[in-house]
Computed example of a mutant assay.
Amino acid sequence: MFHRQAAQFAVALLGFALFVPTSLAQARLANVTILATGGTIAGSGATSTTTVGYTAATVGVQNLIAAVPELAKVANVSGEQVFQIASENMSNEHWLTLARRVNTLLAQPNVDGIVITHGTDTMEETAYFLNLVVKSRKPVVLVGSMRPSTAMSADGPLNLYNAVLLAAHPDAAGRGVLVSMNDQIQSARDVTKTNTTTTDTFKSTDLGMLGYIQGGKPSFYRAVTRKHTTESEFDVGALTALPQVEIALSYANVGPTQVEALMAAGAKGIVHAGVGNGSLPARVKPALVAARAKGAIVVRASRVGQGILARNGEANDDQLDFVVADTLSPQKARILLMLALTKTTNTREIQRMFYTY
């Protein structure tokens, strides 16, 4: 009798040992919500070798999740289809909607992190916008792919796996909005798309990436020092629209047509993507001066892609009452200027913001 009871007890213990660790491990998994917006990662092509000429934004979020069953091992994943667009069609209205949804979700105790699937064309812009308006230290990770889901060696599934792994990891908290592509971790402020088609296109060429994802975990080597997320003074909660800010590109033989047309269209701010260190061509400068006289904020940026834009360098910014973009690209300078204009039109205050974010 004793031996039979002992045997039964041993079997019970074995069953408990087999059951409890699995349950506890499942309980320890972070809760990650995937917000899908479309893009190539949700695209499809006619054949497995179609890597250009495919149709973006055709695969829904539940199918994206189902295609990577390994996600269940790193997080408790749920999905929402926020938009289904190619990212060249991303608008200010999309950004406001997405930002409000992100903030609502992150305020919930049962959401530990968010992954946003996104087209690569404007991913860096969406990431930087969210970097300035998300009000949480919880991880927010943008991810996409350069090949559609139907392509041979599609990069989307592994990119998505890594993004979820990153969003679920405590080391990703408090680092601002991140971009995870090609096994690398990039800062929303610094990253840009550098190649039209290759899978290693996203780089922080000026200041460097933050780290790698390898062996099932993120490794960080650099910290973000500019303010973001919870330290940001910007809030989209009550905004229904963003001020109109446009970009005027400079090049050899450029004239004033762009600036004049943008002002006629109602621009409240103009980012001049100048050559070199933001030089002002002789034919464009009068149009920018006139724009400032009419109340538009003028930001000098550079089309070069790397380097600091020197204040009072290629132009007397103090005298002209212009703002300089620091190290921000023209497209990111536009985002910061839009948000700055929701707070003030004082150029000294706006310049402070460009040196802060």
Rank of each mutant, 00 (worst) to 15 (best):
V32D: 03
L71W: 07
T50C: 13
I116L: 07
K268E: 08
V164E: 01
T37C: 09
S232K: 02
H272M: 14
S250E: 11
V20N: 12
K73S: 15
Y161A: 04
S187V: 00
A10L: 15
T49W: 09
A252Q: 15
K135L: 05
A301E: 10
G60N: 13
K227W: 04
K138R: 15
E260D: 11
D317Q: 12
A10I: 11
L320R: 05
K135M: 01
D200I: 05
R283T: 10
E124P: 06
R300E: 09
S87Y: 02
E233T: 13
G307H: 08
H169W: 09
A340I: 09
G119R: 06
K73F: 07
F2T: 14
T198A: 12
V324T: 14
L29R: 11
R147M: 09
N277V: 08
T33F: 04
D206I: 02
E231T: 10
N312I: 00
R28F: 00
D321H: 15
M181C: 05
T40D: 04
L249F: 13
L18V: 15
G237C: 04
A241D: 12
R189A: 05
H3I: 03
L339K: 07
I247A: 08
S329I: 01
H3K: 13
E314C: 07
K203P: 00
A248G: 10
Y357S: 03
V179S: 02
Y212W: 14
A252F: 13
T49R: 14
A127L: 00
F220I: 04
R334I: 09
R222E: 02
Q186T: 00
G276K: 10
P69D: 10
V111I: 13
E260G: 06
L142D: 08
F220N: 01
V179C: 02
R292I: 07
I114E: 00
A296K: 10
A168G: 12
M152K: 15
T205I: 15
K73P: 02
A293V: 01
V134N: 08
V111M: 06
F220L: 08
P139V: 06
R311G: 03
Y357W: 09
L288A: 07
R28E: 08
V74I: 12
D190F: 09
M90N: 08
A30F: 01
T345K: 12
Q8R: 14
S149V: 05
A310T: 14
Q8N: 11
Q331M: 12
H118G: 04
D190W: 01
G215Q: 09
L280A: 05
S204W: 06
L165F: 02
R147G: 05
T117Y: 03
Q306H: 03
A56G: 14
T197H: 11
V77Q: 00
G307W: 05
E314S: 14
A6H: 11
A310K: 12
A282E: 12
G237N: 11
E80P: 01
A6Q: 15
M181Y: 10
V245H: 03
G208V: 09
R311S: 10
